[in-house]
């Protein structure tokens, strides 16, 4: 049984112009209790890789440049 790719709209959004992950910052990735953020190999910026969010907000609060915004997941909105 092959696996399908099911798209979801993710709650955590990163402003790539503000994100400094390409300078070595990993704060949002480090503080997420569910470990759902990653730094993209392509862009060098943080992004939400896994749609498994508790909308708890340490990623947004601890981001040193204000690049991260946490929205309520669509199914709850």
């Amino acid at each position: 049984m092959p696996l399908a790719f099911s798209p979801t709209t993710v709650p955590v959004v990163v402003d790539e112009a503000k994100c400094i992950a390409d300078k070595g910052c990993t704060v949002c990735v480090d503080v997420c209790p569910l470990d759902v953020l990653r730094i993209s190999d392509l862009t060098g910026k943080a992004h939400m890789k896994f749609d498994e969010c508790w909308y708890c907000m340490p990623c947004e609060k601890d981001c040193p440049t204000g690049a991260v915004t946490v929205n309520i997941p669509y199914l709850l909105r």
């Binding site: 209790p33 569910l34 498994e52 969010c53 508790w54 708890c56 997941p73 199914l75 709850l76």
Partner: peptide
Amino acid sequence: HSGYLFGTYENPT
């Protein structure tokens, strides 16, 4: 009720 696996009362971790 939302069906979102991680939309729990407790921290889902």
